[in-house]
Amino acid sequence: MVKRNVRLSSPEIGGLWGVYIQETMSICLLKYFLHHLKDNEIKPILRKSLHISQTHTKQIKAIFLEENIPLPDGFTNKDINLSAPPLFYDLFALSFVYSMSRMGMVNLGFSTSTVARADVLDFFTHALNQATELYAESTNLMLSKGIYDRPPMITYPEKVEYVKKQSYIIAAVGKKDL
């Protein structure tokens, strides 16, 4: 690796550290899910998610090694027991990828906005794109399986209206007679 003359900033170290812990945890759970999974429609997205998590941990290891920063004590194969009976239904594994990709988009988006070093910015930008892709794929699969719980629908407004009194706020908290 090429030695850089720009040290990592605290948000860069903290962001990479957090992603490393999250990805090592995901690797353990995804391995467990894949070991027990029966649904062949869900397997590809779990395999993809596992590959992404493994790639991210390798990339972070390389950055930390280059900077002589100790690697966080993440989760390992010691933290899973593949011989344990299935604890979850197959659909939960899909829901896990969906939830982790949503959380990833928020966390990676925040981290992306706080880093400046080119290699770290590239890492977070690419990871954010991957999380967004996993979100779209898991959402589409959940929709096709009928398990995606859509947010409530509202009627479309027919015209633009402006608030003329603040009494609606008081009505919302239960006060009357204004």
Rank of each mutant, 00 (worst) to 15 (best):
residue 10 S to T: 08
residue 116 A to K: 14
residue 21 I to W: 05
residue 11 P to K: 07
residue 93 A to R: 01
residue 105 M to R: 06
residue 3 K to I: 14
residue 172 A to C: 06
residue 65 L to Y: 02
residue 78 K to T: 06
residue 84 A to P: 03
residue 101 S to R: 02
residue 160 V to Q: 06
residue 157 P to N: 09
residue 134 L to Q: 11
residue 175 K to V: 13
residue 135 Y to S: 12
residue 148 Y to A: 10
residue 41 E to T: 15
residue 101 S to L: 07
residue 12 E to K: 05
residue 16 L to R: 08
residue 177 D to F: 13
residue 64 F to W: 04
residue 8 L to V: 12
residue 108 L to P: 00
residue 126 H to V: 04
residue 144 S to A: 12
residue 59 Q to R: 10
residue 114 T to Y: 02
residue 68 N to E: 08
residue 49 S to D: 03
residue 133 E to A: 11
residue 109 G to P: 00
residue 42 I to P: 00
residue 128 L to N: 11
residue 150 R to M: 03
residue 110 F to V: 05
residue 170 I to P: 01
residue 102 R to K: 10
residue 120 V to I: 14
residue 105 M to V: 08
residue 145 K to C: 15
residue 163 V to C: 13
residue 45 I to G: 01
residue 145 K to Q: 15
residue 85 P to A: 05
residue 149 D to T: 15
residue 20 Y to G: 00
residue 74 G to Y: 09
residue 100 M to V: 02
residue 151 P to E: 09
residue 87 L to N: 12
residue 134 L to W: 03
residue 18 G to T: 01
residue 8 L to N: 15
residue 64 F to I: 11
residue 85 P to F: 14
residue 156 Y to R: 13
residue 77 N to P: 03
residue 18 G to W: 00
residue 131 A to R: 00
residue 110 F to A: 13
residue 53 S to M: 02
residue 79 D to N: 05
residue 3 K to L: 09
residue 134 L to H: 14
residue 73 D to V: 07
residue 139 T to K: 11
residue 46 L to N: 01
residue 89 Y to H: 15
residue 69 I to H: 07
residue 129 N to L: 08
residue 65 L to K: 14
residue 150 R to H: 09
residue 82 L to A: 06
residue 39 D to E: 03
residue 67 E to P: 04
residue 145 K to Y: 13
residue 160 V to G: 03
residue 79 D to Q: 01
residue 35 H to G: 01
residue 2 V to C: 04
residue 6 V to L: 08
residue 116 A to E: 13
residue 176 K to G: 06
residue 130 Q to P: 04
residue 115 V to G: 10
residue 61 K to H: 06
residue 83 S to R: 08
residue 138 S to F: 01
residue 62 A to Q: 14
residue 60 I to H: 01
residue 72 P to A: 08
residue 13 I to A: 03
residue 48 K to R: 07
